[in-house]
Simulated scan of single mutants.
Amino acid sequence: MNAAEEILDVVDEHDRVVGRLPRGEVYARGLRHRCVFVLARDAEDRVFVHRRTATKLVFPSLYDMFVGGVVGAGESYDDAALREAEEELGVRGLPRPAPRLKFLYEDGGGRGSWWSAVYEVRCAVPVEPQAEEVAWHAFLPEREVEARLGVWEWVPDGLAAYERLREHRRAGGAPRR
């Protein structure tokens, strides 16, 4: 099955399921769905950063400091976070990502909105990202990621999730590991 045929839960403004449709139709109609964002750090506390491939359905060729993706129909956010992190990093046996916050992302660019659950995970093993998902990758110190925020073209939902995670930490939310 290709990505456009994957079945997603369509949700309302309160994150309640109101239907199920193929991903391609959800995207084409700008329907609200669910996504996970996982900030992966290596053993040296550096952040996994990557550039998406040109073939991605959403935000092709842009940089991202999260791995993640859509939550499948009937799948929990927690299960999707672990699945997506292992798939995109190309590893097995990651610890379960720790949930940090959830927010409703409004795209404003015609793609609609999606409930966004933000997680963090420690990845202490070498990564082998999926070639069809990741065109380039590196683990960067967080200060370097921050220095590139205004320089590189970042996926807008990932940038919004990163800024909310920083605000969450400043407000006394779960500390960085």
Rank of each mutant, 00 (worst) to 15 (best):
M1T: 10
M1D: 09
N2P: 10
A3M: 12
E5S: 13
E6G: 05
E6V: 14
I7W: 04
L8V: 00
L8G: 00
L8N: 01
D9L: 01
D9C: 03
D9P: 01
D9H: 01
V11A: 00
E13G: 05
E13S: 09
R16L: 12
R16H: 14
V17D: 08
V17T: 14
V17H: 10
G19M: 09
G19E: 07
L21R: 15
L21W: 13
R23H: 12
V26Q: 04
Y27E: 09
Y27I: 11
A28R: 15
R29D: 09
G30W: 09
H33T: 15
R34I: 10
C35P: 05
C35W: 14
F37D: 10
F37T: 13
R41P: 06
R41Q: 15
D42F: 07
R46K: 14
V49R: 01
V49Q: 02
H50K: 08
R52S: 09
R52G: 07
R52D: 04
R52A: 13
A54Q: 12
A54S: 13
K56T: 04
F59D: 15
F59R: 14
S61V: 03
Y63E: 04
D64Y: 02
D64Q: 12
F66D: 08
G68Q: 00
G68S: 08
G69I: 01
V70E: 11
G72V: 06
A73R: 10
A73K: 01
G74T: 01
E75Q: 15
E75W: 06
E75Y: 06
S76K: 08
D78W: 02
D78T: 10
D79N: 15
D79E: 15
A80P: 00
A81V: 05
E84Y: 00
E84A: 05
E86A: 10
E88S: 13
G90L: 04
R92V: 11
R92Q: 13
P95A: 03
R96H: 09
P99G: 10
P99N: 12
R100Y: 08
L101S: 00
L104F: 06
L104C: 06
E106F: 06
D107N: 10
D107F: 08
G108H: 04
R111H: 11
G112T: 02
G112I: 09
S113T: 10
S113L: 05
S113N: 12
W114C: 12
W115P: 06
W115T: 04
S116H: 06
R122H: 08
V125P: 03
P126L: 08
P126E: 09
V127E: 09
P129A: 03
P129K: 10
Q130M: 06
A131G: 11
W136E: 15
H137E: 10
A138T: 07
F139Q: 01
R143C: 08
E144F: 08
E144P: 00
V145R: 00
E146S: 02
A147K: 03
R148M: 10
L149C: 06
L149I: 05
L149E: 11
L149A: 06
L149K: 08
L149D: 07
G150M: 11
V151P: 05
E153W: 08
W154C: 03
W154T: 03
W154I: 03
V155P: 00
V155I: 06
D157W: 14
A161L: 02
Y162R: 08
Y162N: 04
E163F: 06
R166Y: 05
E167D: 07
E167P: 02
H168E: 12
R169G: 07
R170S: 09
A171K: 14
G173Y: 03
A174R: 15
P175A: 13
